[in-house]
């Protein structure tokens, strides 16, 4: 009973706020499109390395820290 009530409350929420959800989704879809276009340019500029593991500066930093710790050094 409680589950059914929760489900119907969610359904009401979905019906009432659906126009706002659609607008919100459309906004993020536009961000997705812009991000894709910028990404394609960056792929060409970086020589197809954009989005790879080696291109990610944070992953490179983590690798460096792990390697230095393995070699007995300080981070």
């Amino acid at each position: 009973m409680e589950k059914a009530l929760k489900f119907f409350l969610k359904a009401f929420k979905a019906i009432i706020f659906s126009p706002f959800y659609i607008i919100y989704f459309a906004l993020y879809l536009v961000i997705n499109i812009v991000n894709y276009l910028i990404g394609e340019v960056r792929v060409i500029i970086s020589g197809f390395r954009f989005g790879s593991d080696n291109e990610n500066k944070y992953r490179r930093k983590i690798k460096r820290i792990v390697q230095s710790v393995q070699n007995g050094g300080d981070r």
Binding site: N35, Y36, G39, G51, E55, Y58, K61
Partner: peptide, 25 residues
């Protein structure tokens, strides 16, 4: 590597740019 709130957000956006591009390209 991340020490404050703003740096956290910028790191997330840095990763999201790549993940979003890779998932939808």
């Amino acid at each position: 590597l991340v020490r404050n709130k703003n740096h956290f957000k910028s790191a997330v956006f840095y990763h999201e740019q790549r993940i979003l591009f890779n998932t939808s390209k």
